[in-house]
Nucleic acid binder design. Structure first.
Length: 416
DNA sequence: TCTGGGGTCCTTTTGCCC
DNA sequence: TCTGGGGCAAAAGGACCC
């Protein structure tokens, strides 16, 4: 919604745009997953293509602009998207390819400046303030990146150039597809104030409703509202944050990398489940997956959280903080099972379950004794052996007995 | 139209200690 | 002994992002 609103305003008047004092670039791939798929399906270029799962409950991950013309957009339920655009080619995602393409474009970015802050697989902030002498103005660097990404990865991207991160991000959204826009330092307020509130970072559906109730439609409206009023409606942090953004004030720097704060996995059942045996088996699988990823990242976490989404979409979470951090699936699972059983659900219809481990620390910096306390040592050793086997013989070579009989996909009671 | 899966951050509530 | 409340950490919920 908000992104489309941004585009509907059309491009800025085509002036050169003074990019001095604009060291921040936001680079965003155009329809990333779909564009990557089209590289191997060139006959589909120029046609509506939707990337997303094939299951009844899957959603659109990405769509070409030809499909978007029919109203299809990401996060839309697949069923609805196919109804809106029956002629679209639907492709199920191949994440390995996206990871690889992502690594490629991030390498391009890092050849320009070490100050690269990836936001996701397909977008990043760059601070090119230190690269001007070597590579030219911010605009020239942006065009260089766009050319190299097309050359090396065969996909297009859009670039926003500005003095702050969030204006750069808005600019790249407006530059889409396959464009570049500079918002000069002294035109920031002129650029921002006519835009609808929904384009602001942090304003989603709920916040937009709250702002509408206050009669605030545009960013200019927010700018002319007392901070205290915004804070009363939205909370202290969000209120002052939005007020600052509405005047183009954004102190955040480009940060190269922050360590992860949590790792988790969740799964929506193909159909709602009310059998605790199936739920527990899924929790075991998710615990295995989560712990394996912790070990692969040399991380451990101290808090285990379980998430349960019911058939009516209400969602609850329960968490427990352990005495010591862990990366042992058995410990994660035992905790998760305890949390789940404490809910005392009597055959409630469950749509989704998830497991997450929070409060992550480096395994290296965790004293051995502490890490291995609590009876987890044998399990840990066994799981490390399983990791090694998986590395040699492929994932799934070693699995807990409860998961051996049936493949994970068969958690659907109807075996779909 | 019936809503994925990976996360982050913020707010409020709760329980504990003093 | 009862009650209040400050301070804190953990827990829970929810909004948001891609």
């Amino acid at each position: 919604m908000s992104r489309r609103q941004l585009q509907r305003n059309g491009p800025l008047p085509d002036r050169p745009g003074d990019d001095t004092g604009c060291p921040i670039l936001h680079v965003d791939m155009d329809a990333f997953y779909a564009s990557v798929e089209l590289r191997s399906r060139p006959e589909l270029v120029g046609t509506p293509v939707i990337v997303g799962g094939l299951g009844a409950r899957s959603v659109v991950l990405s769509a070409t602009y030809e499909a978007r013309a029919f109203g299809v957009h990401s996060a839309m339920p697949m069923m609805r998207a196919r109804r809106m655009c029956p002629q679209a080619t639907v492709i199920s995602p191949s994440h390995g390819q996206y990871d690889e393409a992502s690594r490629g474009v991030m390498e391009v970015f890092r050849s320009v400046t070490p100050l690269v802050e990836p936001l996701s697989l397909d977008e990043a902030f760059l601070d090119v303030g230190g690269a001007h002498r070597r590579l030219g103005t911010s605009r020239q660097i942006g065009e260089l990146i766009r050319a190299r990404v097309v050359d090396e990865q065969g996909i297009t991207c859009s670039v926003g150039v500005a003095s702050t991160k969030f204006v750069a991000k808005l600019a790249s959204a407006r530059a889409k597809p396959d464009g570049l826009i500079v918002v000069p330092r002294d035109e920031v307020v002129t650029f921002l104030h006519p835009l609808p509130v929904g384009v602001l970072w942090g304003v989603g559906e709920k916040t937009e409703e709250a702002l509408t109730r206050l009669g605030l439609r545009t960013i200019g409206d927010i700018a002319n509202t007392p901070v205290a009023t915004l804070q009363r409606a939205l909370g202290a942090a969000a209120g002052s944050h939005l007020s600052a953004l509405s005047w183009g004030r954004d102190q955040r720097h480009v940060v190269v990398s922050e360590p992860d704060k949590s790792v988790g996995a969740e799964e929506t059942f193909a159909r709602d489940v009310d059998d605790p045996v199936i739920v527990l088996r899924e929790l075991l699988r998710l615990s295995e997956r989560t712990a394996a990823r912790l070990r692969a990242a040399d991380s451990m976490g101290r808090t285990v959280a379980v998430k349960v989404r019911f058939a009516d979409f209400t969602t609850i979470t329960r968490s427990r903080t352990l005495r010591e951090p862990t990366d042992v699936a058995r410990v994660v699972y035992d905790t998760a099972r305890g949390l789940y059983e404490a809910l005392g659900l009597q055959r409630a219809r469950i749509r989704l379950v998830g497991v997450r481990v929070e409060g992550l620390v480096d395994t290296e910096s965790t004293p051995r004794q502490l890490a291995l306390g609590g009876g987890g040592e044998e399990w840990r050793a066994a799981e490390q052996a399983a990791d090694a086997a998986a590395a040699r013989f492929g994932a799934g070579a070693v699995r807990p007995a409860a998961l051996v009989e049936r493949s994970p996909r068969e958690v659907d009671p109807d075996g779909l």
